[in-house]
């Protein structure tokens, strides 16, 4: 059993507008262990994405973190200043977005945007960086990395784009990747490939992955642990097999029923 990398305790996030206040997350507890894939499962609007964003402190201005701690390697991320967050984002914790078409800036080449991560987080010479990016793209299984590097995001297919996004996320060798529904826009074969890729990267790069998804099938195959979230609270967290075999919460049962 490896140590806990990310520990979220009692996290509450709410949206406020003068008198009106609504909790998006209430007292969320979540642990991600080192070199472990945690599947965070829940229905639409249950607060999955909000958890992901609040770890990186990228919540929309209307959302306020009310209480709780987010311990990453023992430091409370919520106590860090804006400036101190920058070296953590991308370098320690990075994010894979749901729709890479929008997550890449359309006016720059994909290769240049992956390179950006290296510019901000690694001391590398220009030439080294180019080779490194090429290497990264190969690592995530892009068949023609040279061409992908030169392409704009709209010129790549959905699967390639998602791989490029993953390449960007692992560029600075982070410890934790937050993958926000990484496969929901892909067809089943591509989903399987991306799942393979995640599994491979986990062991190769000693990564932990927080896999945010509503796809129970995917979690079943990929995740070591599962957390089920409903209406802003984590109702159940445990090892995948255990949760699938002996769900302890009614909502989990219903989810599993829906799957079969």
């Amino acid at each position: 059993m490896s140590e806990i990398l990310l520990d979220i305790r009692n996290l509450s996030v709410s949206v406020r507008e003068s008198q009106y206040k609504k909790n998006i997350l209430s007292k969320v507890n979540l642990q991600v262990k080192g070199q472990n894939i945690l599947g965070l499962v829940g229905g639409s609007g249950s607060g999955k994405t909000t958890i992901g964003l609040s770890i990186l402190r990228l919540l929309a201005p209307a959302l306020k973190t009310e209480e709780g701690v987010i311990l990453f390697k023992g430091n409370d991320l919520l106590k860090l200043s804006r400036k101190d967050m920058c070296p953590i984002r991308g370098k320690e914790i990075s994010m894979v977005f749901q729709e890479p078409l929008y997550a890449f800036n359309p006016v720059f080449r994909v290769g240049d945007q992956i390179e950006e991560v290296l510019i901000y987080h690694e001391q590398m010479k220009r030439k080294e960086r180019k080779g490194y990016v090429l290497n990264l793209l190969e690592k995530v299984g892009i068949p023609d990395p040279k061409r992908a590097m030169q392409s704009y995001s709209h010129q790549l297919s959905g699967g390639l784009r998602q791989r490029a996004m993953i390449a960007q996320a692992i560029a600075a060798n982070p410890n934790l990747i937050i993958a926000d529904e990484p496969t929901s826009n892909l067809d089943v074969t591509r989903q399987a490939q991306i799942m393979d890729l995640f599994r491979r990267l986990k062991t190769q790069l000693k990564l932990s992955i927080l896999l945010v998804t509503h796809d129970l099938g995917m979690v079943k195959h990929l995740a070591d642990e599962i957390a089920v979230i409903k209406d802003g609270t984590v109702v159940e967290q445990g090892e995948t097999r255990q949760v699938f075999n002996r769900p302890s919460h009614l909502y989990t049962c219903k989810l599993l029923e829906a799957l079969s």
Partner: peptide, 26 residues
């Protein structure tokens, strides 16, 4: 409000870098 600005933030770029690299080019 574009998602690539959020992505750039998630990559650890500072605000001024984002303004210069991701907003002004558009």
């Amino acid at each position: 409000e574009r998602e690539y600005v959020l992505a750039a933030k998630a990559m650890g770029m500072t605000d001024i870098q984002i303004i210069i690299k991701h907003i002004l080019p558009h």
